[in-house]
């Protein structure tokens, strides 16, 4: 029971990170119907930027307040990652819009290879570890020497995720941008005809996706304290799984899918086999796509004859 409780806490934390990345997949898929393969690597780049920013703040500028440092790191990572994703969309995807379906996918795979190798070449292949940013925890229950804890790190992740999701939900559900996005999802040409700036809307979608991935990257760095150039692929695929599980195109679906994947992964590691924890996520992906391709909250895709 205690193990379960602890895994629940860990799973929700991990799931929040996956959920933030998954929103990026789901939004981009929703608007241009493309699996943005490079999104996992954008997340990894964000974690590296957060790493650099954190080092500048703590070792050079000597900022001692972790809260301030973390806040600045978050903002810097979000700004920079948004810029990266904006440029990626301009260079690698926009010229291929309306071209045949596989071209953007291959371009995105190429971009993914490029990004991870760029980080490997520029920052070196070794794991980058930093001293823990945030320490301390609450002990919730103790039983037979097993303490169920909720660490401050986890609390921060929950809090930041929740706040961001509310802002983000407001942005998509209540603003002009959100309306333009939904219009483009339905029919880009029609949206353009009624005066929606399609290019700009798509660009902004990539920017938002990147900003959320940057939050995920920063949280990832803070939580694990270590990051390497190859950390984009597997979290990327898992977040994509989350998006599919929630129903691709559905924003609440992405978040709930993320939480589910996080939970499945931690529970699987605790009760079955930690070696095969990635198999759990990949199997969920395959099983969902095969038996429930519209996901939990997606619209079913009817084959009209």
């Amino acid at each position: 029971m205690e193990v379960f409780l602890q895994q629940l806490i860990n799973g929700i934390t991990l799931g929040s990170i996956y959920g933030l990345i998954a929103i990026g997949y789901t939004m981009v898929f929703g608007i241009i119907g493309m699996v943005n393969f490079a999104h996992g690597d954008v997340f990894m780049v964000a974690a590296f930027v957060a790493l650099v920013a954190f080092l500048i703040l703590t070792t050079w500028l000597g900022i001692s307040s972790i809260a301030v440092a973390l806040f600045i790191v978050l903002i810097v990572a979000m700004l920079f990652t948004s810029l990266v994703n904006w440029i990626i969309e301009r260079l690698a995807y926009r010229p291929l819009r309306g071209s045949f379906r596989l071209a953007p996918l291959i371009s995105a795979i190429g971009m993914s290879i490029f990004l991870s190798n760029f980080v490997q070449v520029s920052q070196g292949p070794r794991n980058k570890a930093i001293p823990p940013m945030v320490q301390g925890d609450f002990v919730l229950v103790t039983h037979n020497d097993y303490a169920v804890t909720l660490s401050f790190k986890q609390l921060i992740i929950w809090g930041v995720t929740a706040v961001l999701l509310v802002c983000f939900w407001y942005l998509v559900a209540r603003t002009r941008l959100g309306r333009a996005q939904r219009a483009c999802e339905q029919d880009q040409r029609m949206a353009a005809l009624v005066g929606v700036n399609v290019d700009q809307t798509i660009s902004l979608t990539f920017v938002i996706a990147a900003a959320l991935a940057a939050v995920a990257g920063t949280m990832y760095l803070m939580y694990y304290g270590v990051v390497s150039f190859s950390d984009g692929f597997v979290p990327g695929v898992k977040a994509f799984t989350a998006a599919v599980l929630g129903g691709i195109g559905s924003l609440p679906g992405a978040v709930i899918g993320g939480l589910l994947i996080g939970l499945i992964e931690t529970m699987w590691s605790a009760y079955f086999s930690i070696d095969y924890k990635d198999v759990a996520a990949f199997s969920v992906l395959a099983i969902t796509l095969i038996f429930l391709p519209q996901g939990l909250f997606g619209r079913p895709d009817v084959e009209k004859v």
Binding site: A103, I106, M111, S112, I113, F114, N117, V121
Partner: peptide, 21 residues
């Protein structure tokens, strides 16, 4: 040799943009 995969990924993007077919 470090730059092999970097250029490989880059070439994939460029070729797709120039000749998507």
């Amino acid at each position: 040799t470090q730059y092999r995969m970097l250029l490989f990924g880059f070439a994939m993007v460029i070729i797709m943009v120039l000749r998507p077919r």
